[in-house]
Design a protein around this nucleic acid. Structure first.
Length: 313
DNA sequence: CTACCTCGAGCTCA
DNA sequence: CTCGAGGTAG
């Protein structure tokens, strides 16, 4: 029943968009229902309209256990929305066309907005409304822009940007989300971050570009002035950290095995099915070169750590 | 260099 | 879901 079609996630700060937020009876769109919706439309940075409504969900199947017809105590407490408030609220069918019109063709902005989109998608499905809006997720942008924050929940970000508002009510969360979007936009501009840059996070740094202080080189070390290459996953250090230690000693690192390589440090392959015979292509290449008489040594990760003992922070 | 594959860890929504 | 760390192919 889950409609296949869905819009795509856009990594940019938009100028024309609609913020959306829902309150629901729970986390699972398959079992739970919307109890409140709010949307704010922006055009060129200016507000261009808003809608908000409570929504009466179907009666809970387990309502007789605690006598609460629409939402359980946890949701009442979380949102401040009570069963009494829902009793006279319109049902989704009553405001479906209004929401549909307001969102038509809009770029949707929200915090973990896929959550809201999934609920709306299921709610619109019976009306044959194609819901394929593209969207901007402030949580995703936040993780990109503020990677060192311990959490990226809406409330945490509101604190971080000093935004006040009624958290866990749909309109309050829309306003907080808008503030977060503006805050993130400011940081992006300030730091010159290129959000749209494709594959930016895979900027694997070229190990040949690592630098170190020559005054601290260890000239009698086995790695001094020699070329190291890594293969497999290291357990204790990232590849870059390990490479930096080699460079600090006065050695060099490269990304692949060549005729100049002197050491191949081998990490783990255990989960790599496509590594034939438990040997990576780098290792196979190295073995060939050794047979041809190259001064090249293959060593395990633990042997590597023994050799750099004392150089690790 | 560029593009794409893959596993595993961690997270956020009510 | 997304992302990090690692791989492969051309």
């Amino acid at each position: 029943m889950s409609g296949r079609s869905s819009g795509k996630s856009i990594m940019e700060i938009p100028t024309d968009y609609t913020i959306i937020d829902l309150e629901t009876t729970g986390l699972d769109p398959h079992w739970d229902n919307i109890i409140e919706v709010a949307c704010i439309k922006y055009r060129g940075g200016e507000e261009a309209g808003r809608i908000q409504s409570l929504i009466q969900p179907p009666i809970r199947e387990d309502a007789d256990e605690d006598g609460l017809p629409y939402i359980d105590g946890f949701i009442e407490k979380l949102t401040g929305i009570t069963n009494d408030m829902l009793k006279d609220a319109p049902m989704f069918k009553d405001i479906e066309s209004q929401i549909e019109d307001f969102l038509a063709g809009e770029l949707l902005v929200g915090h973990n907005v896929k959550f809201d989109i999934n609920f709306l998608h299921d709610s619109f499905a019976p009306y044959d409304v194609p819901f394929e809006n593209d969207f901007v997720d402030t949580m995703r942008i936040s993780r990109r822009v503020l990677p060192d924050l311990p959490h990226h929940r809406l409330g945490d970000l509101a604190d971080y940007f000093n935004i006040s508002g009624t958290h866990h009510r749909a309109m309050g969360d829309c306003e907080m989300t808008h503030g977060v979007l503006l805050g993130l936009a400011g940081i992006i501009k300030e730091k010159g971050i290129e959000l749209a840059k494709k594959d930016f996070w895979r900027e694997k740094i070229d190990l040949r570009s690592l630098q170190a202080n020559p005054a601290k080189f260890i000239k009698d070390h086995i790695f001094y002035d020699r070329i190291c290459v890594f293969t497999g996953k290291l357990e204790r250090l990232t590849r870059q950290e390990a490479a930096q230690i080699v460079v600090n000693i006065g050695g060099h690192c490269e990304n692949g095995v060549t005729k100049r390589t002197n050491f191949l440090i081998v990490g783990n392959f255990d989960y790599r099915m496509h590594v034939k015979g438990n040997k990576s292509t780098k290792m196979q290449r190295a073995e060939q070169l050794i047979l041809k008489g190259q001064d090249l040594q293959i060593m395990s990760e633990s042997a590597f750590y023994d050799l750099i003992e004392g150089e690790i922070d």
